[in-house]
Amino acid sequence: MESGDLRVFRAVAQEGSITKAAHKLGYVQSNVTARIQQLEAELKTPLFYRQHGMILTPDGEKLLPHAIKILQLLNEAEKELTDSNTPTGRLSIGTSYYISSLKLPEMLSQYHKEYPNVDLSLITSNVDDLIYKILQFKLDGAFVKGRSIHHENIAEELVYEENLVLIANPAYSELKTICCKPFLMNTAGCPNRKSLEKWLQAEGICNIRYMEFNNLDSIIEGVVADLGASFVPHSSIRTYEEKGLLKSFPVPPQYSTAKIFFIRHKETVMTSALVKFIEKVKDMTSRVANA
């Protein structure tokens, strides 16, 4: 088996289509088809069902994890042989939708200024998709919020622990009055939203209304405009509170602590680009925590 054939096989398996795999690889479709047929002839077994797209056969399912591992080992060997103390090459980072207090744009901007030869990319997705991409070596690392990831192939570090507070227009002072208004929160699945619901249910408040925003600045501005209340990191609203534009209310600690982790595959090559990125994350998050 040639590594090129395995790359084509992996692409077709992941895309479920000859056309999409050819586009992803930059090949013509006939080349992809020929490589798959050649691999099947060499292994003397069909690897795909072809009725509706390209669906893996049982033998194809057996081959896929081996192909992924072989290609990753080749990639690691190349990285180790070409890596230097000066960060270069590709660095792919992921983050979940709900991370706001880390100031990622500022962090990425500073990293890019210090290491301009690194081809840095950032994708935003849900936690399950980020974990999948980490396990498939599609990402070098990712920021996830709310829960520790217990998986034998994932290494994680606690990056930041933030304190959440209830916020509302300064005109309000009682919890029940505040909770009659809608809560400006991220969409369902947000760890902050889950913690808010647990706390309010413990207080006997179950009829919670939401207005969904997926932008922290919009949420805060909405609260200032008395559109509703919210549940956000205290560090994100200090300036507004000091100016008297909104008021924050403490929440019991079992509901107000949110954790952010940086995760990576345990077998990911620790290139100088990744090592320097982790150092930058630790440096900036320590400053945010001490601010």
Rank of each mutant, 00 (worst) to 15 (best):
L73V: 01
L64C: 10
L74E: 14
L56R: 06
L64P: 11
N31Q: 07
K62Y: 10
M54Q: 11
G53T: 02
G60A: 06
K62Q: 12
Q38A: 03
T33Q: 15
P65K: 02
L71T: 14
L39D: 04
R35M: 08
T57E: 01
Q72P: 00
P58W: 00
K62P: 13
T45K: 15
G53R: 05
H52R: 14
R35Y: 08
I55L: 06
Q72E: 08
L71D: 13
P46Q: 04
V32D: 13
R50M: 08
I36L: 14
L74H: 15
Q51L: 10
Q51E: 11
L43P: 05
R35H: 07
D59Y: 11
S30P: 02
P65S: 00
T45A: 15
Q72S: 04
L56S: 03
F48R: 02
E40Y: 08
N75V: 04
K69N: 09
L39S: 02
G60V: 07
R35G: 04
K62T: 09
G53I: 01
I36Q: 14
H52M: 09
E40M: 11
H52F: 10
A34I: 02
A67T: 05
P46G: 07
A67N: 07
N31C: 06
L56Q: 04
G60T: 07
H52L: 08
L63F: 12
L71V: 14
L71Q: 12
L47E: 05
L47M: 06
I68E: 15
Q72C: 04
L56A: 04
Y49W: 12
L71N: 09
K44H: 14
K44L: 12
Q37K: 15
Y49G: 03
N31K: 11
I36K: 14
I70E: 11
K44I: 08
A41W: 05
P58L: 00
